[in-house]
């Protein structure tokens, strides 16, 4: 006798609502990873989401968690206040690269340096997505955007910022890892990293940071499949995947 079972189990935190993202955008996958991690760790009732400005501004529509929308780049500052007022809650921010690496650089650096016990999910798609594809600090050299139509030039605009490496070098950081979601193997690794970041917060070890390399097919002027390939061929060579800081791993050695 056989019975049919369902292989896919979408967590309840993920609301049953169509997303506003463009076809092939990796934000949806990143939302699902966060939802799965929170559900797996049993943190649904005590999580507080700090949203940011960017394409992910409507994340509170897709995750049924208590949420605060913060001004552009200031999510780590808002999260600091929330965590200090309610240390029993799990506080996390979900930010894009224009938000975190450009206008919010001061907030994230000092938040990480103070070792605030929060988690930051950083989605890096090398461009300002929501405002129409302007150059971001993480835009790769040679990449064409609306504000560098000839391609980013090293002499004028400098090199792209590798955020995870910078964050990992700060004192208060417990966990820093860069992952991608361009294929199934990387998605599995990304899920482990996101889960670990939340786990470190529950253990009160300090600041945890996960950078997710994502695509923006619309502003890269590519099809979703071409954009997915670009992550592999252009982004991962400059933004290497892997763990850059893990306080527990050091203790084991």
């Amino acid at each position: 006798m056989t019975q049919e079972i369902r292989v896919t189990n979408y967590p309840e935190v993920l609301t049953d609502r169509p997303t506003h993202y463009c076809p092939g955008c990796h934000h949806g996958t990143a939302h699902r990873l966060v939802a799965e991690a929170i559900t797996d760790l049993g943190l649904v009732d005590k999580s507080i989401l700090i949203g940011s400005i960017g394409c992910s501004v409507f994340i509170y529509n897709y995750l049924s968690l208590d949420a605060i929308e913060s001004p552009h780049g200031r999510a780590p500052a808002v999260a600091t206040g929330v965590k200090r007022a309610r240390p029993d809650k799990i506080v996390f921010t979900y930010q894009g690269d224009g938000d975190l690496a450009s206008i919010g650089m001061a907030e994230i650096m000092h938040c990480a340096n103070r070792g605030e016990n929060i988690t930051t999910i950083f989605v890096n798609n090398t461009v300002y997505g929501m405002t129409g594809g302007q150059m971001a600090p993480t835009t790769l050299v040679g990449q064409k955007t609306t504000t560098c139509p000839g391609g980013r030039c090293r002499e004028n605009e400098g090199m792209p910022i590798r955020m995870t490496e910078i964050i990992a070098s700060l004192g208060g950081v417990a966990y820093a890892e860069r992952v991608a979601v361009n294929n199934v193997k990387n998605i599995m690794k990304a899920k482990k990293a996101v889960t670990k970041a939340f786990e470190y917060q529950t253990k009160e070890l300090g600041f945890s940071f996960v950078e997710i390399l994502a695509t923006c097919p619309t502003n890269w002027h590519m099809t979703p499949l071409q954009a997915n390939k670009r992550v592999e061929t252009e982004m991962i060579p400059y933004f290497p995947l892997g763990n850059f800081k893990d306080v527990l791993a050091k203790e084991e050695k």
């Binding site: 056989t2 019975q3 049919e4 292989v7 169509p18 934000h27």
Partner: peptide
């Protein structure tokens, strides 16, 4: 029934079902 498609889908629109033998059953 590997559900790779569901894992990759950014819009959560794929559901995968598979059949499993009930315990004790031979077929």
């Amino acid at each position: 029934g590997c559900a790779f498609c569901a894992m990759m889908c950014p819009d959560f629109c794929i559901n995968v079902f598979t059949t499993k033998q009930a315990k004790g059953g031979k077929k």
